[in-house]
C-alpha cells in the first residue's frame, strides 16, 4: 500500500486543522518580536531598516549566542523595544536564566519598551537614563551581550541629546557624538567573554571605530551589511581579542575587517 503524503487525499477538515496548527505553531515559534505587537508613540523611534538589520545580525549569530550562554544582556537606547524583545525571544528557549536590561534617555521610549515586552510575554529591566549612567559601577564587567542602535545620523551638534525622538537619531558631527561616548562605556560593562553589536553608517567612519576598539583590545567583524536608498548600514560585532586565541572555532566567517574598509569605504570622509 502506498502511504506517500498527498494533501489532496486528506479530507477538508483535516487540511483546515493542519493549517491552523501550522499557523499557531508559526506564531509560537516566531523567534523575533512581531511588528503588530510593537508599541508606538509619536516621540519614539519606530522599528526601521536599521532595527531590522540589527535583529537580523543577532538572528544570524543566534547559534553562537546560545553557545555563549549569556547571563546578562543589555540594550543601550531601546526605543520601541523591538530589538531587546527580539533578543529575549530568540534566546528564551536556550538561555532560561538570562537577565535583560534596557535603557533609554527618553521616558516615553522606556514606557513604550515596557509595553512591547509585555505584549510578547518577555521581560527586561528598563531604566530611564543617559546610556548606562547609574549602572556602570555595579554592572562593570558583567554584560555578556550589549546591543546598540545608536543615534548615528550626522546632524548639527546642538541636536544631540535633545528631548523626544530627536535623541534617537541625532548623532552630531559624522554621527559620532554619541557613538564615541558609548565605546568606553561598553568597554567597562562587557564581560571577558562578552559580545557587542552596533549599527553604523558609512558616514560614521566604521573603520576608525574598529581601530579605536582594537586599541582597547577588541576584534571585530561585519555580521550584516545592507544598503538602502538612503544609507549603507553595517552591523559590527566586537569581542575581546584574547577569546579568539583560545580557538573557540566560532569565527569561521571572519575576514580582515580593516582591509575591507580600506578597499570599500575609503571615499566616505
Amino acid at each position: 500500500m502506498d502511504h506517500s503524503f498527498d494533501v489532496n487525499s486528506l479530507n477538508p477538515d483535516m487540511i483546515d486543522k493542519k493549517r491552523s496548527n501550522k499557523l499557531a505553531s508559526s506564531k509560537m515559534l516566531s523567534n523575533i518580536a512581531q511588528i503588530p505587537l510593537v508599541s508606538q508613540h509619536p516621540e519614539v523611534y519606530e522599528p526601521c531598516d536599521d532595527s531590522f538589520a540589527l535583529v537580523d545580525a543577532l538572528l544570524a549569530d543566534r547559534t553562537n549566542l546560545l553557545n555563549l550562554q549569556p547571563r546578562f544582556c543589555m540594550e543601550v537606547g531601546c526605543g520601541s523595544g523591538y530589538v531587546i524583545a527580539s533578543l529575549a525571544i530568540m534566546l528564551h528557549q536556550g538561555c532560561s536564566g538570562a537577565q535583560y536590561f534596557a535603557t533609554d534617555i527618553n521616558p516615553q521610549a522606556a514606557e513604550t519598551t515596557a509595553s512591547t515586552l509585555e505584549a510578547h510575554g518577555v521581560h527586561a529591566e528598563i531604566i530611564c537614563t543617559d546610556l548606562a549612567s547609574g549602572l556602570r559601577k555595579r554592572l562593570a564587567g558583567m554584560m555578556d551581550v550589549i546591543v546598540v542602535n545608536p543615534p548615528y545620523v550626522p546632524t548639527p551638534e546642538e541636536e544631540v541629546g535633545c528631548e523626544g525622538i530627536t535623541a534617537s537619531w541625532a548623532g552630531g558631527e559624522n554621527g559620532r557624538k554619541v557613538i564615541d561616548r558609548i565605546l568606553p562605556i561598553v568597554h567597562s560593562l562587557l564581560s571577558e567573554k562578552g559580545w557587542f553589536y552596533m549599527v553604523t553608517l558609512t558616514a560614521n567612519n566604521p573603520s576608525q571605530i574598529c581601530s579605536m576598539m582594537r586599541e582597547m583590545g577588541y576584534a571585530s567583524r561585519i555580521v550584516v551589511q545592507r544598503s538602502t536608498e538612503e544609507e549603507s548600514l553595517h552591523i559590527i560585532k566586537f569581542w575581546r581579542e584574547h577569546m579568539e586565541k583560545k580557538g573557540s572555532g566560532s569565527w569561521i566567517s571572519q575576514f580582515p575587517l580593516l582591509s575591507f574598509w580600506r578597499s570599500s569605504g575609503g571615499s566616505s570622509s
Binding site: I105, P107, A110, E111, A114, I126, I127, C128, T129, D130, S133, G134
Partner: peptide, 9 residues
Amino acid sequence: SKGIPNMLL
C-alpha cells in the same frame, strides 16, 4: 513610575 526608575539628571 510604572516600574521604571528614572535616573535622568
